[in-house]
Amino acid sequence: MTPDIVRDLHPPRLPADFVSLGWPDLLAAFGVGLILAGLALIVLQPALRPRRRPLRLNDRIAAAARLPDDARLIALSALLADRGQPLPDDLRHALYAGTPYDPARAEALLRKPREAAHV
């Protein structure tokens, strides 16, 4: 192509109806916006989910107190293990042999500070 022919070419033009903004265009843009908002919600949903706070020690001890004796001993033993405290011999014997035990002693061990519990 010679430069004269290129210079004489008219720029491409779109029809006037295609260039003007009408209600179908606005409706399509609104629909695309809703779809994008839905996708963003799906992606962000795990971050927006409320998180449960872990129960405090006193709440866990109170929940164990409402259990039957055998289940209470197991729950208190699990709490001691979660805190890294060793299970005393009398509670260990009650856990495995089914002998009577004092739940107040296990609760007192749980309520001690962690440093003092290992001594």
Results as ranks from 00 to 15, higher is better:
2 T>Y: 11
114 R>P: 03
66 R>V: 15
97 A>Y: 11
98 G>D: 10
101 Y>F: 12
46 P>S: 02
68 P>M: 11
55 L>F: 07
55 L>V: 11
87 L>Y: 01
25 D>G: 10
61 I>T: 00
30 F>Y: 10
12 P>K: 05
82 D>Y: 03
56 R>L: 05
72 R>F: 14
22 G>N: 14
59 D>E: 05
36 L>Y: 00
75 A>Q: 07
60 R>G: 03
56 R>I: 06
111 R>Y: 03
9 L>Q: 07
102 D>K: 08
35 I>E: 01
96 Y>Q: 12
35 I>W: 00
30 F>N: 10
115 E>Q: 08
61 I>C: 02
39 L>P: 00
41 L>Q: 03
106 A>W: 01
8 D>F: 06
66 R>P: 08
58 N>H: 05
116 A>R: 05
29 A>M: 01
19 V>A: 13
83 R>E: 06
43 V>Q: 06
22 G>K: 08
111 R>D: 02
11 P>H: 08
109 L>S: 02
68 P>T: 14
30 F>P: 01
17 D>R: 13
25 D>L: 06
100 P>M: 13
33 G>N: 00
78 A>T: 12
92 R>I: 12
104 A>W: 09
42 I>W: 05
105 R>W: 11
101 Y>E: 07
44 L>E: 08
1 M>D: 14
25 D>F: 05
62 A>H: 01
112 K>P: 04
38 G>P: 00
99 T>Q: 14
47 A>T: 11
46 P>D: 04
108 A>W: 07
23 W>Y: 14
28 A>Q: 02
4 D>I: 08
7 R>F: 07
119 V>L: 13
106 A>G: 04
40 A>T: 04
79 L>K: 02
73 L>R: 05
34 L>P: 01
74 I>D: 15
51 R>G: 09
63 A>C: 11
114 R>E: 12
17 D>H: 12
5 I>F: 13
19 V>W: 05
